[in-house]
Amino acid sequence: MVAPALSSHGISKAFTTGHITQQVIKDSSLDIFPGELTLVVGPSGSGKSTLLSILAGLLRPDSGHVLSLGVDLWTLKEAEIDRFRLNHCGFIFQGFNLFSPLTALENVILPLQYLGIRGGSAERRARRALDEVGLGPRAHLRPIELSGGEKQRVAIARALVKEPQLIFADEPTSALDKTNGQITVDLLKRIAHEHRAMVLGVTHDPRLLSHADRVIELEDGYVKSDRRSSTTVEEPHHAPD
């Protein structure tokens, strides 16, 4: 049996706007496993991005625990959480968020420098990551010279280059056409399998679901269903044997 890379226990989160308080996540508990691509789906407002933020150490929950690689994440100080993300987490966003003054290669090298990896070894690792997403020959180009799909692959290389155990992807395909969306999600799946990394994505794109190893459906802050690609698991926090 494989231990989960990430588990949440009874997390809740509410947002208050004026006099209105909305409970976005309600007592949610989940186990996410390494070596597979897990997608969280749900309609807009179902709280899936909020859930991802809490699990990734970006947004503090009102209650509950997140056990990330065995660390009780939200008991750490702000700087320690930063350090944890630096060492273990990769992120992919809907909007790519690449620095336009930097080439693809430099965008990938940048996070390595903050890990203290510089010079030749940083460049070698960045080139390897770009090769892995199939962009080796276009490493010298700036984001403006790349297509949307290529930009997202640079962003994936940037997330991958640190060799993180945890990769989070927020709507990674919603700014892409069908072909590029499929390339991206297949890439994420391959990374999960080959690097034995946990890849947790959030999407509302139904076309991607067939590519995922596991699909968790969220509605109104609750887990509505939890399916594996072959079998369907009704109990959301049930670990596979």
Partner: peptide, 18 residues
Amino acid sequence: ASLKEFAALRALGVSNAS
């Protein structure tokens, strides 16, 4: 103008001080 890119670096664990 680069706020999102800076936020992406923050997500990757780059500290505010950096």
